[in-house]
Amino acid sequence: MTVLTQSAAVAMRPVRLILAILALTVAAFPARAVDRDRLQAFLEVTGFGVALDSIALSATDAPQMLGMQASDFGTEWRHAAEDVFDTEGMRETALVILEQTLSDELLTHAAAFYASPLGQRLVEVENDSHMTEDDAAKAERGEALIGEMVERGDQRIDVLRGLTTAVNGDDVAVRAVQEVQMRFLMAASHAGVLENELDEGALRALMRANEADLRVSLSKSALSGAAYTYRDISNDDLVAYLEALKEPQMQRVYELMNAVQYEIMASRFEVLAVRMATLNRGQDL
Rank of each mutant, 00 (worst) to 15 (best):
A59C: 05
A62E: 03
A62T: 12
A62N: 08
A62W: 04
P63S: 09
P63H: 11
M65S: 09
L66H: 08
G67P: 04
Q69D: 10
A70C: 02
F73Q: 07
F73S: 03
G74E: 09
E76S: 14
W77T: 10
R78P: 00
A80N: 10
A80K: 10
A81V: 09
E82Q: 13
E82W: 05
F85C: 09
D86R: 11
D86N: 13
E88L: 14
G89V: 02
R91S: 00
E92V: 05
L95F: 02
L95I: 11
L95D: 00
V96E: 14
L98N: 00
T101C: 13
L106K: 12
L106D: 09
L106R: 14
L107K: 06
H109Q: 14
F113E: 00
Y114W: 09
A115Q: 14
S116D: 04
L118K: 06
G119W: 07
G119Q: 11
Q120D: 08
L122F: 07
L122T: 06
V123C: 07
N127K: 04
D128H: 12
M131K: 10
T132Y: 06
D134Y: 00
D135M: 06
A136S: 12
A136N: 08
A136R: 06
A136P: 00
K138S: 02
K138W: 01
A139F: 05
E140C: 02
L145M: 13
L145H: 02
E148Y: 01
E148A: 15
M149D: 09
V150I: 04
G153E: 02
D154R: 01
R156K: 13
L160A: 08
A166Y: 04
A166F: 13
N168F: 14
N168A: 11
G169V: 05
V172K: 02
A176H: 11
Q178H: 08
E179L: 01
Q181P: 00
M182E: 13
R183H: 13
R183D: 07
F184H: 07
M186S: 04
A187W: 02
A188D: 02
A188S: 02
S189Q: 01
H190E: 15
A191L: 10
A191G: 09
E195D: 15
E197K: 15
G201Y: 01
L203A: 06
L203C: 11
L203E: 14
